[in-house]
């Protein structure tokens, strides 16, 4: 029996694609056939036969980056869902991110949810069913904005905060001030996790505050942030 290296999960940035099942929208990997189940951890499996995913010399595992500006802008536009994820279990640390054994989202950002739904309408069968599920939920709750419904549906299913990113934000993550704010969101989403899970409203408000600061920093129409 060995002592763990860390008693808190590793937090990193990644993107998801919108999918759907019978109960509503789900988060899917844009690169592999993997779906994050709601309120349950996703566990990595290696299709090459590695015994313990993620293995050192293999590319298997659940990916996360240390900073959102390392994500390709076109990938963020194509997928439309950015967020911080927790990684735990066996974790391989890389120079610019991590590969983990278990993963669950901590906070999600939708890049224009109406656009995400509109874009997926002509796509695969799974995304078309996601659109149907969201529309059904909107009718049941008598809501008109599909984007708002998608935000609420993801928030209820996964039990994590969901926010909407400003439309012109993907390239702005490369700016130094915005990068620092994104780092604070990642740190707070991990460090405040135990307190939030115990119902500490101060911890929840603290995460909301750093998220608001990030969203303010991504708005080009607002004056620049103080140094």
């Amino acid at each position: 029996m060995t002592a763990p290296d860390l008693a808190a999960p590793v937090g990193g940035w990644r993107v998801w694609r919108l999918g759907a099942d019978d109960d509503g929208p789900v988060l899917e990997s844009p690169l592999a056939a993997a779906t994050w189940p709601a309120r349950a951890a996703l566990t990595a499996v290696c299709h090459r036969g590695c015994g313990d995913a993620p293995a050192w010399g293999c590319g298997c595992g659940l990916y996360a980056l240390d900073h959102p500006h390392r994500l390709a802008t076109d990938m963020l536009w194509r997928t439309g869902i950015l967020g911080c994820t927790a990684l735990w279990g066996r974790v391989v640390e890389h120079e610019e991110g991590w590969r983990g054994e278990h993963s669950y989202p901590l906070v999600l950002f939708l890049l224009s949810p109406d656009e995400v739904l509109r874009r997926v309408a002509g796509g695969s069968l799974a995304v078309a069913s996601a659109r149907r599920a969201v529309i059904g939920a909107a009718r049941a709750r008598r809501m008109t904005g599909l984007g708002e419904t998608l935000v609420g549906a993801l928030q209820r299913r996964y039990g994590v905060p969901v926010h909407v990113l400003p439309a012109s934000s993907p390239a702005a993550f490369a700016e130094r001030e915005v990068g620092a704010l994104a780092g604070r969101v990642r740190d707070e989403s991990v460090l405040g996790l135990p307190a939030r899970r115990l119902g500490d409203r101060v911890a929840t408000a603290r995460l909301d505050r750093v998220v608001d600061r990030l969203l303010e920093g991504l708005r080009p129409d607002l004056p620049p942030l103080p140094a």
Binding site: V10, L87, W88, V91, V92, L193, R197
Partner: peptide, 8 residues
Amino acid sequence: VLHVEPVV
């Protein structure tokens, strides 16, 4: 390689 066991 890290072995991560979250308390929560």
